[in-house]
Amino acid sequence: MSNIGHNSISDEDRRNLFFVHRHHYLKALAVKKAADSALKNVGKSVKADLGPNGLDQIKLYEKAKTDEGLQAIKDEIESHRQALAYADIPVNTQIDLFDMTAKFDEKAYKAGLTAGLEGETMINPYNEATQDGQDWGRGWHEGQGILFEGIKKKEQPEPESELIKQPDHGEPDFPDAEAA
């Protein structure tokens, strides 16, 4: 009776498979290390450009895009509000970051702007013949412009500092050490 996962193969075949799998593992590990390094560099760039909380903001933004994530954020904000109240820090109003204060006619524009900034394909959720459809498209184009302008700025090399150069006066008039 053979055990689950046990293959009846020769020791030589098993040894060969060991080295094949070792090769695949090491290759995948190298890819993982390179990806980890690239992710760390992105984090450093975010911190340099957006400050120490920039990466947290990006993560929070992504989390808020799901219903579960949004609820978790609301719960955490309420928990923070309670903790501040317990510490006798005056919090006179309930924090409501999710109040839709944007005018209704700006909603389509802002949604398009966000889609453009996220680099999404232009798939207008509104009928393009309506005002909302036109506003969404205008926002998307503006977001794309901002995104690509930012990408161009990040891809431009840093200007090299110029060294102060003295004019070339030919060979110096120092006597050779051998001639002395």
Rank of each mutant, 00 (worst) to 15 (best):
M1R: 11
N3P: 04
G5R: 14
S8M: 09
I9F: 04
S10P: 06
R14P: 00
N16K: 15
L17Q: 14
L17K: 11
F18N: 06
F19P: 06
V20P: 02
H21M: 14
H21V: 11
H21Y: 15
H23R: 12
H24A: 13
H24K: 14
K27P: 06
A28I: 05
A30Q: 08
V31R: 07
V31Y: 05
K33P: 02
S37T: 10
A38H: 11
A38T: 13
L39Q: 12
K40L: 11
V42S: 10
K44E: 15
V46I: 15
K47S: 11
D49T: 12
L50M: 14
G51V: 04
G51F: 09
L55Q: 12
L55D: 07
E62A: 06
K63A: 04
A64I: 01
D67R: 03
D67S: 06
L70S: 03
Q71L: 05
I73T: 02
K74S: 01
K74Q: 04
E78P: 00
H80E: 08
R81S: 11
A83Q: 09
A85F: 04
A85P: 02
A87P: 09
I89A: 11
I89N: 07
V91Q: 13
T93E: 09
Q94Y: 08
I95M: 06
D96L: 07
M100F: 04
A102K: 07
A102N: 09
K103C: 03
F104C: 02
D105H: 09
E106F: 09
E106H: 14
A108P: 03
A108I: 01
K110C: 01
L113F: 10
L113T: 05
A115D: 06
A115E: 02
G116H: 02
E118V: 01
E120T: 07
I123P: 00
T130Q: 03
Q131W: 03
D132K: 04
D135M: 01
D135Q: 04
G137I: 00
R138P: 01
G139E: 13
G139R: 10
W140S: 00
W140A: 00
H141F: 01
H141R: 07
G143M: 00
G143D: 05
G143F: 01
G143W: 01
G145E: 13
I146S: 09
L147P: 03
F148W: 09
F148E: 12
G150P: 08
I151K: 05
I151L: 10
I151M: 09
I151T: 14
K153W: 05
P157D: 15
P159Q: 13
P159T: 09
S161V: 08
S161N: 08
E162H: 11
L163Q: 11
L163I: 10
I164K: 08
I164P: 07
I164M: 10
K165C: 08
G170W: 02
E171T: 13
F174H: 13
F174T: 11
F174D: 15
P175L: 13
P175K: 08
P175Y: 06
P175T: 12
P175R: 11
A177E: 14
A177W: 14
A177Y: 15
A179R: 08
A180M: 13
